[in-house]
Design a protein around this nucleic acid. Sequence first.
DNA 1: CACGAATGTATTCAGCGCACACATTGTTGT
DNA 2: ACAACAATGTGTGCGCTGAATACATTCGTG
Lengths: 194, 194
Amino acid sequence: MTQTRPYHHGNLRQAVLDRAAVVLRERGAAGLSLRELSADVGVSHAAPRRHFADRQALLDAVAADGFARLGTRLREAVDAHPRYADRLRAAATAYLDFGLTEANLVELMFAHQRGAGGAQVRQGATDAFEPLLDVFRHGRQEGVVADGDAERLGLLLVATVQGITNLVACGVVPAAEAGALLDAAVGRFPGAGA
Amino acid sequence: MTQTRPYHHGNLRQAVLDRAAVVLRERGAAGLSLRELSADVGVSHAAPRRHFADRQALLDAVAADGFARLGTRLREAVDAHPRYADRLRAAATAYLDFGLTEANLVELMFAHQRGAGGAQVRQGATDAFEPLLDVFRHGRQEGVVADGDAERLGLLLVATVQGITNLVACGVVPAAEAGALLDAAVGRFPGAGA
DNA sequence: CACGAATGTATTCAGCGCACACATTGTTGT
DNA sequence: ACAACAATGTGTGCGCTGAATACATTCGTG
């Protein structure tokens, strides 16, 4: 009757990451405790150490996962529209949505990276932003974006939207004004229409 | 000979804040410990509690202080130039400088505010950005900025520069490219010249 | 100068990250 | 089949932390 829990969890790493994502959303990165996560998942408090060298390694993994999810969202948003201007707006909106829904996650993703694990997180970030660069590469084909501007415009879009997300997330700009601010920002990019 | 340390420190609150600013710069917000700060300053580990209700209250105070310093820097940068375009560039450059020099502090300042102390921090942020809004108000007098656009442009400038700072601080954009990216961003604001 | 408010001290407690020795299970070569 | 080894989970202990509480000292003020 009493189903004995097997000695080996089987998928402990992913289970911890999943639980960490939930706690992160509810209580922020400061509320993430390896011991509490262990208890939640039902293993001893030392078990996760087999999968995460230390607490920072767990945070890095959560952040990398976040960038992967953000990248997927951006890719979907871009692919949903054929024309440059629509792709630009859709990507920016998707970014803002993600940032407001997962404010704590984004805060962690963009936290100052110190250790060696930071390199992997940074690579994840670069990959995630690829769809945005594609928007401007596509815009160049449509003749709206000048040659060689694609990369710089991509970074500028990331910076602008991340900045807006940041301001709204920390409460300096009311959430109600986020959309209008984003529209104003996107509208200033070449070929976005007034 | 042996100068007896007085029972009352005299300026404990400011001493803790000063020491916290140093530790924050060296080791980040996660490295801030009330107990260690107490030892550094030379008081018992419970003493700071008379001035900061809990750890978060200390972080809030450090953040508020950071916004005050940022505001001063921005004001100085703006006041140093008479013309709109120069003021815009100087302010943006001053912001980026501050952000790169005090990356850990800025990260703390823009951290998601939860508790009641967040309101004071948010007010400090709004005050600090006032010089930037003034730039565009001044631009309207010069006829470069349209009526009613000042506030929105100000927030957009904050968002853009904060976003760039964020990207550079977390290592996604190399520090060497920060200046060029900032130039490109500022150049897209009305009346900034090409 | 007495008395309350402000400020600092000493002690205690629970939770945390981390390190280590040990236990159990999965895998692989012969 | 089975021995040896790698991978994974457990239990214990240490030092540090934030927080709560009772107590001590000093300051300010009537």
